[in-house]
Design a protein around this nucleic acid. Structure first.
Lengths: 247, 247
DNA sequence: GATGGTGGTTGACGTGGATCAACGTATGTT
DNA sequence: AACATACGTTGATCCACGTCAACCACCATC
């Protein structure tokens, strides 16, 4: 253990602190005061790098921490014993992983990196302790959990009530909106997941996803080249979601 | 306002208190100490009766409280502008409603009573205040939220990866298990929702639900008479979920 | 710059569940 | 008791998506 008081603050320390993180408005600290945020730095202890295709955590593992994505992206999925996979979400920078584990103190899904990624490890017991002292943290954390529940309801809507092309259009619009929030282009982005993973998430087969992409391209809504997507007609995509074709 | 100290505790007071409630092990207070629970009684202020088919809250309404079901049952649903409905859940006694509202401070779904029901109103600001003082309450509340997330993932699995009969079998098993937890028969129960609502929840049309019920009956798995269900072969139903037919 | 592997596209065909329609059966109202 | 209305069942037909299969485009690695 190092004596903290004895060492000067290094560039690495600064970078790791919530107060210095450029993801502030997207992550757990959103809406908290500066003094509150400076206290968070003690909460977010270490970080962890995860290589592409490696798990951050697995179903059945003991739950100890939640994770904030600093760089990269992840998918979460649930496996059925017969091998069927259901992707339950795709997460990007600033989003929180691991909330599923609180309920039973064991993780109930797998979180796998879609590219080389880095997460901030937030020890859960520390989070509970600190959020008893900090109203802002408590409130933000509750909002994060609630947001996840609302998002899940949206996915249920998608899976339960929409047809293939509506689902894919909604998916693209959602991605676009999240990229925008992160300062990236709303119209042009790179998919980090395969057609198969998109299909699993949307309750479709990869061939159906591929065909829908092609159809959107033929209709001039998007330009697809493998994982590279350019949205050409965002209003057209929106219309697809809200007025599902003619039927 | 009445002077509390001046009036003796009435039977009604006793009945309303968490400490006197027989739903203890199913509801928010689960796992808390007796002294903690006695403090909860100040949290759960009033109760509200909701008639069958009446909403407890609606999409867009300001969020102020969460609700614990004392008697009866509810459905939650999301409506699309074109009229399509997605039922996102069915809730029974002891379960918590309204968590969707924390995220934006407005409700993002409708909660509708499936029968005449009663809920305990838990003011959200009071809950946050009290759970900063009570570790047990805080922890339990987090578990309740996390459990909802895990449940939602299960529904995604259902909607995204299972076929019609698997979905219905999983649904029946889930109901049976929840009735058991409440001291009711695992094998015989009354559905409070229509075929259409089950269908919406499971991403199926009511005709498909009806046909699946009939098929299960023909196969001797259950006995159906309208809303009355008797499970005759629970192992058979389980097998249906885990080994989806022969294919 | 060959080679192998993974991921993506496209076509032909099959099928599970939706749709449309007719008819039963409870439940509640006057 | 008669009637209306909502809910449930069942059959016939259709179609959106799944399945199966062939081929193509990347990109690693040697």
């Amino acid at each position: 253990m190092q004596m903290k008081a004895a060492v000067p603050i290094t560039a690495a320390d600064l970078k790791s602190a919530c107060s210095q993180c450029n993801l502030l408005e997207l992550c757990l600290p959103f809406g908290m005061t500066e003094t509150e945020i400076s206290r968070l730095d003690e909460l977010v202890g270490n970080r962890r790098k995860i290589k592409r295709h490696q798990p951050l955590y697995r179903t059945g593992e003991a739950f100890e921490a939640i994770y904030a994505i600093r760089t990269g992206s992840f998918k979460t999925d649930v496996l059925l014993e017969d091998g069927r996979e259901q992707v339950t979400g795709f997460q990007m920078t600033g989003e929180i992983l691991g909330l599923d584990g609180i309920s039973t103190e064991f993780h109930s899904c797998n979180a796998v990196a879609l590219e080389d990624s880095e997460v901030c490890v937030i020890a859960y017991d520390k989070l509970e302790t600190l959020s008893r002292e900090m109203e802002g943290l408590q409130h933000q954390f509750h909002k994060v959990m609630s947001r996840e529940i609302v998002r899940d309801h949206g996915v249920m809507m998608l899976l339960g009530s929409m047809r293939a092309e509506e689902r894919l259009a909604a998916f693209l619009l959602n991605l676009s909106q999240r990229f925008t929030a992160r300062g990236f282009s709303a119209a042009e982005f790179h998919l980090r997941m395969t057609r198969d993973e998109i299909g699993s998430y949307l309750g479709l087969k990869l061939e159906t996803v591929s065909r829908a992409f092609s159809k959107f391209q033929d209709e001039g809504l998007i330009a697809v080249q493998q994982k590279h997507i350019r949205i050409l007609n965002i209003a057209g995509l929106r219309k697809l979601v809200h007025h599902p074709a003619i039927r």
